[in-house]
């Protein structure tokens, strides 16, 4: 994408391959990355993916594109490899990755540096299996002792 500035021909050929919906978007909101190649500098448009504060009334106006449409445009752009030309949006891959790292899979404990608590049986499973394994290793010796002590007649250590 870095050589886009320098090569307007490439931009044109890229535009031919783009989805019409993306094309319409870029025509309406030319990305800052390719604006310098145009002849006259266009006035900076507000980010259509963000809500805007009205200068006079101070009220916030909704974004031009709803979150659903933002997601759809981002998806199309990602498929065609032009996502970085889009304005900043919460639906962008980078933002999504950030959120994924923070929250994980929305299941408590799946984020970075977090731990899933799990059921007690799951937490203690490893220890129990280890205990069982050790008991099975000691089993032949135990059976031998048991046989020597008259099949339980002289056994002292009964389980609780």
């Amino acid at each position: 994408m870095a050589n886009l500035h320098s090569n307007p021909k490439k931009l044109v050929s890229l535009a031919h391959t783009l989805h019409p919906r993306l094309l319409r978007f870029f025509a309406r909101y030319p990305p800052a990355a390719i604006v310098p190649t145009l002849t006259e500098p266009a006035p900076a448009l507000p980010n259509p993916f963000k809500c805007q504060k009205h200068l006079v009334t101070g009220r916030r106006h909704d974004p031009v594109f709803s979150l659903r449409r933002q997601a759809e445009i981002v998806k199309l752009a990602r498929k065609q490899g032009v996502e970085e030309l889009l304005p900043h949006t919460v639906k962008g891959t980078e933002e999504r990755m950030k959120r994924r790292a923070e929250n994980g899979l929305r299941v408590k404990g799946t984020g970075v540096g977090q731990k899933v608590k799990g059921k007690e049986s799951e937490r203690t499973l490893k220890g129990r299996l280890e205990k069982r394994r050790q008991a099975m290793l000691d089993m032949p010796q135990m059976i031998q002792t048991w046989k020597e002590r008259g099949h339980g007649r002289g056994w002292k250590k009964w389980p609780k």
């Binding site: 069982r132 099975m136 089993m139 059976i143 339980g152």
Partner: peptide
Amino acid sequence: PVVRKKVLFLEQK
């Protein structure tokens, strides 16, 4: 059946 072997069973106190 858990370990699928014949093992020693002892009466619980």
